[in-house]
Nucleic acid binder design. Structure first.
Lengths: 344, 344
DNA sequence: GTGAAAGCGCTAACAT
DNA sequence: ATGTTAGCGCTTTCAC
């Protein structure tokens, strides 16, 4: 069991020699390119088979493509992202492309590092999920390599976008709660200071959607927004603030399921139970929401659909870099569970 | 806003010309290699800075390293894996290496595809988390590129391993429950048919640990194992079987937190509450376990430690491919929460 | 200490 | 339809 033998990789030259053809021929067969007779294709295929040849992607990249797609995720912990990733990988399943993930990049700096790394590795296309980088950085990237941005609003002439309608999603929640009889419905949002992000991030749209829906239902003066952050901790602090109000809300719309988990923590500490003392809704319909002891009413973003759409657009753009950019907007649905009920 | 200008990448040649030195010199500075005077280093660094040069990893790979580490995850949905990934990325944070993740590969076939893809992309090292591939495949891989296997027992002369002591973890749970006064403690395990995997997979060790701990505590005849699978569904079915026993257990030790979630579902349906009617413990101490309405007693594997150890071993092996393989075994701890209490 | 030059494995012009 | 050949951007002998 010696790990010594440095076993040289089988190269295209080996295949060519073994099949008695030129390396060009092999290359053509590999890429299904024009200019190879069926007979030759067969010969080459057999040689590839017999030698167990696999093209070396790094070398291919030097001249052509690497057949690699990079997906940047801001946070692997968020259980919503796997849906998107599945949508992407499913789409590429039957192609020669391989999807690789850039791990959790909280913050601009880490995000930049990962995206640069992907470019440096010659990736053929990038899918950026909920990036926080400034628009200028995204556009610079998109100028270098075909890019699709997922989960961030705002159009660009350089990259395609896929979003879920966060505005509509927030409306669904408000309507649901109002229909149950709630009037005093509070919202916990993610505080955003950066001006471009204020315009483009989902959290902003959700807050906006909440505000407008409240107004539409004639509850403008019941509007109550607490700005913390889209974390469990943010939900905890947000709920504490809301519970300290002289007129407490009867329902809380948390901007994300994660946030709702923090709310549950705070409510539990205060001895309040859901939905008897307080109705609660989240956003993303993550695994958490479906767990029986949680059973959280939530908004289901079409995660898988977002992923597959992003993959489709990216593939289109890789084939035709000059086609105008496309914006896809999917529609969310409400999943009502037992965390929301009529107020007492 | 024309995406037309094909903006050629800045290459090592540009840097060399700008700094008035040879490309060799630039390469040396890049790699901190021997044979460059401080003066030259400085000149080159400035040129790199001014031109905004970034080495093209794909091209580097053709001769040397790609400075890329591949981490294969069997399932991005499992909230335990992010801990490992964090451990890995933290370790590589201050190096030139970039970590890329191979997305969810349930099953041998998908796993093989991803690992092959990583090799084809010239990755300098591989970290395989809980792989299900046969040993022979792992060893073939390890022969091609430095490899560390995480979360799978069994030694190899070709790859290093990092595991958590699953046997001890199961003991912790049994002891905890017995100390609380339980005698009839059941275990839900993952049914494994493949012989190599039976020997090497964590689930087997947990079941074994459970069995031995029960015996040690003089409860051999109370031993009760249900074989389903490490999924929520598996937990659900397992619990249903256990509830149908003529003598029901007073506590259930689920082999994974995921499984415990399924148990909660079944208990809920049966109108039983935790821990009043049944104590429950999981394994992995995932985010789920910590959520207030769940509050699951669980075993904390040192996920971050597993990741950082794997990274360290991999880096060592990359620098010295001939050093004998190492096996690291970390110790788990019990996190007692309110899902376990004295039986009635 | 420094640089010229030969590849790494592949693709793409350009012959033939 | 097929093969020859010049690179892609970098690292690495091997002269100087």
């Amino acid at each position: 069991m010696e790990p010594s033998v440095p076993q040289r990789r089988v190269t295209i030259v080996d295949v060519a020699r073994h099949a008695q053809v030129s390396t060009t021929a092999v290359s053509k067969v590999l890429r299904n390119a024009y200019g190879a007779s069926p007979a030759m294709r067969e010969k080459v295929r057999r040689a590839i088979e017999e030698l167990g040849y696999r093209p070396y992607a790094a070398a291919r990249g030097l001249r052509g493509q690497t057949y690699t797609i990079g997906v940047m995720l801001p946070d692997i912990r968020n259980p919503f992202f796997p849906d998107i990733v599945d949508g992407v990988t499913d789409w590429f399943k039957d192609t020669d492309y391989q999807v690789l993930l850039g791990p959790g990049c909280n913050g601009e700096q880490a995000e930049a590092r990962v995206t640069e790394a992907m470019v440096d590795r010659g990736m053929d296309g990038l899918i950026l999920v909920a990036p926080v980088s400034p628009r200028s950085h995204l556009e610079r990237l998109a100028g270098l390599v075909p890019t699709v941005v997922v989960g961030r609003h705002g159009h660009s002439a350089l990259y395609d976008t896929v979003v879920d309608d966060d505005h509509a999603g927030a409306s669904l929640v408000v309507d649901h709660l109002v229909d149950l009889g709630h009037r005093r419905i509070a919202h916990i949002e993610h505080l955003e200071k950066d001006p471009t992000r204020i315009a483009e991030m989902p959290n902003t749209k959700r807050a906006e959607g909440y505000r407008q829906a409240m107004q539409r239902r004639g509850l403008a003066e019941e509007t109550d927004i607490v700005s913390t952050s889209y974390t469990q901790e943010g939900g905890y602090r947000g709920a504490q603030q809301l519970l300290a109000r002289e007129r407490r809300p009867t329902a809380i719309f948390a901007g994300a399921d994660f946030v709702a988990m923090g709310v549950l923590e705070a409510l539990g500490e205060a001895g309040l139970s859901v939905p008897q003392d307080m109705s609660l809704a989240g956003y993303d319909n993550t695994t958490f929401a479906a767990l029986r002891p949680i059973s959280l009413t939530s908004v289901d973003q079409a995660g898988h659909g977002m992923g597959s759409n992003a993959a489709r657009l990216l593939l289109e753009r890789i084939t035709d870099k000059s086609r105008p950019t496309v914006q896809v907007r999917l529609s969310p649905t409400l999943v009502a569970r037992s965390s929301s009920a009529a107020p007492r």
